Every structure is written in structure tokens, then in C-alpha cells.
Computed example of a mutant assay.
Amino acid sequence: MSFQTAIRPAESVDIADIRRVARAAWHAVYDDILGAETVNDHLREGYAPPVLERMIELDEVGLFVSTADDDVVAYMSCGMTDATGFGDLDLYVHPDYWGEGIGTELLRRGEAHLRDLSVRKIRDEVLAENEVGNGFYRAHFQKVGERTAEFGGQEHPVNVYERTV
């Protein structure tokens, strides 16, 4: 790594950068799986500025950015999903920074936030066709199952992973 990284809570000024990273990562991973139109629809809905602003405001949702030499290159959101102690996280790194350890750094920060929320276990799902995401999860989580999920009007196989916090 020839750059200086830092992780911090996201702020309103980061919304455009989070959207930029999301656009690059989602298109790189999902265009061939879901199609660019479906990806654009998801980005429009899931990453609308009011949605991100609300995530920043909620204490129970951790929204963090990772910077490389002060530029936002990754982000992660995490929170409790189930009162029995399960949480999840969504983590995306700009493709130019894949393999640099930024995702692992964000995972550690997310675990600290989830512990503060009394989360005992992270459960996440990754489309089976997402080679990049599955590679990351195989390195850090245990695969505990498979299922199908609808995305863009189509059924897709999904791998289910867990990690004790």
C-alpha cells in the first residue's frame, strides 16, 4: 500500500463520494450478472442522497468511509438486523483499490460498531456469481448456507455467510 488510509464516520459532505464509489463497484461487479439497467435502478434507489443522509443521522446504523490520501475510496454500513444479536454490513471498495486490505480494515471497524450495538454475529448474503464479494467473504466469514433471492425481477443463487463478532 503506497498511500495513507484512514476510516471515519461518514458525513454529509461524503455523499457524492459514497455514490461515486458505489457506482464504480456495483457496475464492475454486477453489470454482467444483473445488467447495467438493473444496477442503475438499484443505485438510484439505494443511494439517493436522502437515503444516505438518513443513514448518517441514525446512531444505530454505522456508515463509515475509508480514505486513501484523503480521497474516499470505500464505504461500509452496518447495524443490528435482529434482536437476537445478528447484524449485517454492506462494504464496497472502489475497484482501483481492490486487494489493498481496505475491506479488511473496514470490516474491523464495522465489528467494533456492531459490538457496541450488542451484535454477536454478522450474517451477510452475497450473490453466488459475485466472485469478488465471495472471495472477500470466504477469507473472513464462514459459509453457512445458500438460498435464492430476487434481484431485478430475476431469481439468483445467494451464498449466506456468518462471522462471530
Results as ranks from 00 to 15, higher is better:
residue 75 Y to Q: 03
residue 54 R to H: 13
residue 159 N to A: 09
residue 27 H to T: 00
residue 89 L to Y: 05
residue 139 A to E: 10
residue 162 E to K: 03
residue 67 T to I: 06
residue 100 E to F: 12
residue 104 T to K: 15
residue 2 S to V: 10
residue 37 E to H: 05
residue 22 A to Q: 00
residue 15 I to T: 04
residue 78 C to M: 07
residue 119 V to F: 09
residue 2 S to W: 12
residue 59 D to I: 07
residue 61 V to T: 14
residue 146 E to W: 05
residue 22 A to P: 00
residue 130 N to M: 10
residue 26 W to H: 00
residue 76 M to D: 05
residue 160 V to M: 06
residue 149 A to V: 06
residue 158 V to C: 10
residue 89 L to A: 02
residue 90 D to S: 14
residue 137 Y to N: 05
residue 130 N to D: 12
residue 5 T to S: 15
residue 32 D to M: 09
residue 74 A to E: 08
residue 103 G to K: 08
residue 38 T to G: 05
residue 144 V to S: 07
residue 69 D to P: 00
residue 8 R to K: 12
residue 30 Y to H: 06
residue 24 A to E: 11
residue 131 E to F: 04
residue 76 M to E: 13
residue 129 E to A: 15
residue 99 G to S: 06
residue 148 T to C: 04
residue 160 V to L: 11
residue 70 D to W: 11
residue 24 A to D: 09
residue 51 V to A: 04
residue 98 W to E: 00
residue 139 A to S: 14
residue 67 T to A: 11
residue 101 G to W: 09
residue 107 L to G: 04
residue 55 M to N: 08
residue 54 R to I: 04
residue 3 F to W: 13
residue 80 M to G: 05
residue 33 I to L: 08
residue 162 E to P: 03
residue 94 H to D: 15
residue 164 T to A: 14
residue 41 D to N: 13
residue 14 D to R: 04
residue 107 L to A: 09
residue 17 D to C: 09
residue 4 Q to E: 11
residue 6 A to S: 15
residue 28 A to W: 07
residue 58 L to C: 07
residue 135 G to C: 01
residue 22 A to S: 02
residue 55 M to E: 14
residue 140 H to N: 14
residue 158 V to N: 09
residue 21 V to N: 06
residue 101 G to R: 06
residue 30 Y to W: 08
residue 19 R to Q: 06
residue 158 V to G: 03
residue 65 V to E: 05
residue 33 I to H: 07
residue 23 R to H: 09
residue 160 V to Y: 02
residue 155 E to K: 11
residue 65 V to T: 03
residue 9 P to W: 04
residue 116 D to R: 11
residue 151 F to I: 12
residue 60 E to M: 11
residue 68 A to G: 15
residue 155 E to A: 15
residue 44 R to Y: 01
residue 46 G to Q: 07
residue 125 E to M: 05
residue 68 A to Q: 08
residue 121 K to R: 15
residue 31 D to P: 02
residue 121 K to E: 15
residue 1 M to A: 12
residue 6 A to K: 15
residue 68 A to K: 08
residue 149 A to Q: 07
residue 90 D to A: 14
residue 88 D to P: 00
residue 98 W to G: 00
residue 14 D to V: 07
residue 13 V to P: 01
residue 162 E to A: 15
residue 138 R to F: 14
residue 36 A to E: 12
residue 155 E to F: 10
residue 118 S to D: 15
residue 1 M to T: 10
residue 41 D to A: 15
residue 91 L to H: 06
residue 37 E to D: 13
residue 165 V to A: 11
residue 25 A to E: 02
residue 34 L to R: 00
residue 65 V to S: 03
residue 112 A to R: 13
residue 21 V to D: 03
residue 124 D to N: 13
residue 15 I to Q: 01
residue 74 A to Q: 08
residue 11 E to M: 14
residue 71 D to E: 14
residue 45 E to R: 13
residue 58 L to Q: 13
residue 73 V to I: 15
residue 73 V to F: 10
residue 104 T to G: 09
residue 32 D to N: 13
residue 136 F to M: 11
residue 131 E to A: 14
residue 135 G to S: 05
residue 79 G to Y: 07
residue 161 Y to G: 01
residue 110 G to F: 03
residue 13 V to L: 12
residue 31 D to S: 12
residue 47 Y to K: 00
residue 157 P to F: 10
residue 24 A to I: 03
residue 156 H to V: 02
residue 36 A to W: 03
